[in-house]
Amino acid sequence: MSEIEPPPEPAAEPPQSLQERIDAAHIRLPSRGNRKLQQLVDAVNADEQVKAWWHVAGVNAQRLGMSDHSWVHIQIVTNIALRLSRLLFKRGIVPSVVTDHGLTERDAEVVIAAASLFHCVGMSIQREDHERFSLFLTADKLPTLLRGIYDDPVRSVVVAEASHGIISHRTKGQPFTIEGAIVRVADALDMAKGRSRVPFEQLLPNIHSLSSYAIESVKILPGREKAVRVEIEMNNSAGIYQVDEGLGTKLRGTPLAEHLEVVARIDAEHEQRLVPVFRL
């Protein structure tokens, strides 16, 4: 996935103190000259409260035996969301904030990044219904971070649209904006095994853990017939569950469904290929 910052390499020895863990959290993304976007990221990186929420969200995910929900997941999802948005906008898909509020594509990037940065801070409180808790925490924090970047009424519009993106990523979320759909799908696309995954040996052997571990890589590319092509490499057909029930569920019925092509392939020498290519 070009233009997406890679997840950080694991340190030889993980930081021990709380302050060291907070200091280690630092979001990187390609702002591509979007000054307002970079200002938001700089403000978030300087905010220890937000980074503390990411830390506790990650700890709670570990307690529950889930895949990573720390700042690493946040960085991956935000980068994926920006990658998706730029490919879509380049192909003429107009952001909802442009259509409905007369804002710009760069403002849409701020909305998408803000929603991605805050979409699972509610995990610091509770897993169940964490999307609503994320809204609760975001309600005061995001306007503060955007002060100096936007004045009202634009600031309140950006906060409202970002909040829609946050709530839209829940299991039964129904985004009715392009930006909300991008955040929902970006969250689902953080599926490749690697730095952000809980080691397979720590997970209970069920279809969720088997399917997650079967995903080797995810590539987000310009499409041919559609605006975006997502290519997923699997080492085992169990990964189809992750693609269909995970990504498929979050893509179907959204404003992005007609603009994304998803192709999953099995690249395993010793597996009987019951379904060599799976498409959404």
Results as ranks from 00 to 15, higher is better:
residue 20 E to C: 10
residue 205 P to H: 07
residue 44 V to C: 11
residue 198 V to D: 08
residue 34 N to T: 11
residue 134 S to D: 03
residue 219 K to W: 11
residue 125 I to Q: 12
residue 197 R to F: 12
residue 272 Q to D: 14
residue 28 R to C: 14
residue 213 Y to K: 10
residue 87 L to N: 05
residue 217 S to K: 15
residue 275 V to L: 13
residue 180 G to M: 06
residue 43 A to I: 00
residue 196 S to M: 10
residue 14 P to Q: 12
residue 156 S to W: 04
residue 224 R to N: 12
residue 262 V to W: 11
residue 65 G to A: 07
residue 117 L to V: 05
residue 189 L to M: 14
residue 209 S to G: 11
residue 105 E to T: 13
residue 159 V to F: 02
residue 177 T to R: 09
residue 173 G to Q: 04
residue 248 G to K: 06
residue 60 N to Q: 09
residue 123 M to K: 15
residue 66 M to H: 13
residue 171 T to R: 14
residue 206 N to D: 15
residue 86 R to S: 08
residue 238 A to Q: 09
residue 182 I to Y: 05
residue 173 G to A: 04
residue 221 L to P: 05
residue 109 E to N: 00
residue 2 S to N: 15
residue 1 M to V: 07
residue 36 K to V: 06
residue 17 S to H: 11
residue 244 D to I: 00
residue 85 S to G: 11
residue 218 V to L: 08
residue 108 A to N: 01
residue 245 E to V: 00
residue 174 Q to F: 04
residue 161 E to Y: 13
residue 85 S to P: 03
residue 232 I to L: 03
residue 17 S to F: 08
residue 214 A to Q: 05
residue 142 L to V: 02
residue 151 D to V: 09
residue 151 D to S: 14
residue 85 S to R: 08
residue 65 G to C: 06
residue 193 K to E: 14
residue 132 R to M: 12
residue 160 A to S: 15
residue 183 V to I: 10
residue 201 E to H: 14
residue 97 V to Y: 03
residue 130 H to Q: 11
residue 7 P to R: 12
residue 127 R to Y: 15
residue 104 T to W: 00
residue 79 N to H: 04
residue 218 V to D: 02
residue 160 A to D: 14
residue 222 P to S: 11
